[in-house]
């Protein structure tokens, strides 16, 4: 299997390489270190590598966090919340409403004479930006079509698998508990022996 794997594939699996590297680092620390704190750190790294393993397997390419986007709730077609070029026709339709609102508004702001220029420019910028595609609207039905598709896609966006992440929340809690308990035991060992070097402790036990 590995023989068939080209370099691109091997690099594409870089998450798994990191997992294995972390796993082996942690494992080595647990085995090789006589200092209890270092052993516990190694154990932590070892456990963390598994968290990465799970999160990696839950990741879907191009997938996003499994949170329902806002416009799904608004239904299809109302592209107001999602700003895209294809959505311009509907923007134009919306903009028609906006002009009705903005005209009296900008007029009022202008009368108030408090920093009115920028808001007016903004409003006018809005107008120019929208008026262009609104001209195209009649000629380009495709654009309207593609817009409908995107709205659909927004509703059925690609999500990463949430389950491994949820499992890892549990595993992280377990890891925290393990670390806390290990550190508490280390404190007690130090109270009893005055050292946290495993060799010295075993030596003291042997002579005692």
């Amino acid at each position: 299997m590995i023989a068939q794997m080209d370099i691109g594939q091997a690099l594409g699996l870089y998450n798994y390489w990191v997992v294995i590297f972390l796993m082996m680092t942690g494992f080595y620390m647990v085995i090789a270190r006589g200092n209890l704190i270092k052993t516990i750190i190694g154990l932590n790294i070892f456990q963390t590598s598994v968290v990465l393993l799970y999160v990696t397997m839950g990741k879907v390419k191009g997938g996003t966090a499994p949170i329902m986007p806002l416009d799904v709730g608004h239904g299809h077609g109302h592209g107001h919340d999602s700003h895209g070029h294809e959505e311009a026709p509907h923007h134009a339709a919306d903009a028609a409403d906006h002009t009705m609102l903005q005209h009296p508004l900008s007029g009022r702001v202008g009368e108030a004479e408090e920093g009115p220029a920028s808001s007016v420019v903004d409003a006018s910028g809005h107008f120019t930006g929208i008026s262009e595609p609104s001209v195209q609207l009649t000629g380009f039905e495709d654009a309207a079509h593609s817009h409908a598709d995107t709205a659909h896609q927004a509703a059925e966006a690609i999500y990463s698998n949430p389950l491994p992440s949820v499992l890892m929340l549990t595993a992280i809690v377990v890891g925290v508990a393990t670390t806390a308990l290990a550190l508490a035991l280390t404190v007690r060992i130090r109270e009893e022996y005055g050292t946290i070097e495993e060799d010295e402790i075993l030596e003291m036990d042997r002579t005692a």
């Binding site: 647990v30 052993t39 154990l43 456990q47 290990a182 035991l185 280390t186 060992i189 009893e192």
Partner: peptide, 15 residues
């Protein structure tokens, strides 16, 4: 020696 025994078990058990 009890805490050390527990810690040794903890390390192996966690692995």
């Amino acid at each position: 020696r009890a805490p050390l025994a527990a810690l040794q078990y903890l390390i192996l058990g966690t692995i």
